[in-house]
Amino acid sequence: MAKGEIVLGCLAPHPPHVVYAENPEQNEAFSEGGWETLRWGYNRLARKLKTIDYDAMVIFTPHWQTYIGTHFLGLPEFKSKSVDPVFPNIFRFNYDISVDVDLAEKMCKVAGESGIVTKMMRNPDFRIDYGTITSCHMLNPEWDRPLVTISSNRNAHYYSPEVMNEQASALGEACAKAIEESGKKVVLISSHSLSHRHFVTESPLPEDMSREHIYNHSQYVWDMKLVDLMREGKMREVIDIMPEFTEQTIAETEAGGLTWMMAAMGYPDYPAEIYGYQSVIGTGNLIAAWDPMEATREVVL
């Protein structure tokens, strides 16, 4: 059996607003659009994904928060409705997803053998979080590939962003090993914003783009610092400054997603593909991808 490999890594933010703005048939709410810079970036990355041969998407989500280790979805099908507890007015999504349970179990096993506390989630009533759904829908609206969803262990809350970095790195390395052993071609998804300070009010029409902007300028400057480093292929440096970035911008990187993905990909030293940056209710959202194949790597923006 050939070794498995990671064929693409995607930073895919999950504000439900982008799904709402797309008006897919699965979502009950209706919009007049909005957040085009992000959506069009997502559309382009989704087109690239169609040109790539892969078996499964593996997504690390901040909205399945666990404090007792890292958990993996462990049943082949989940069908239900996901309602965003924060933005229920815009996101009530009827989903029907399939899970690559073999790959999930392998990741769980390898991570466990490396000393990480793990658990398979096998309760059929479990509801899939809106982070998983938003990122996966925007990258693959046909939903024609199985997923593995990994919970975000919130040790950063108990210890520090430095500990989060260490633990997420270890998890990333374990997942890479499991993928290699699986013989599968996998797309990794790190589902989160960068800076993550929200406005606490919402305009009467959520998609009113005249009201949308970053929460404050320091958040923007920090976000751009990371984008610059990504363009330069300095992902080791990004991860090194991750604790400070996370604390300064209360970034959603606190869940460990980007660190996990970069560790799994060996801290790329090649430029990231940048697909778009835009604020959503004040938070900073970047769509980016890391393509290990030099021949297909693009300068997008």
């Binding site: 666990t66 924060v86 989630m121 509801r127 919970s151 209710i281």
Partner: peptide, 24 residues
């Protein structure tokens, strides 16, 4: 919550809930 303070007003909310950590 993020957008201010949310108050449940469904007359009969009904679901099967599962905890993120203690699903087992």
């Amino acid at each position: 919550s993020i957008i201010g303070h949310q108050i449940q007003a469904h007359p009969e909310p009904e679901w099967v809930h599962v905890d993120d950590d203690f699903h087992f």
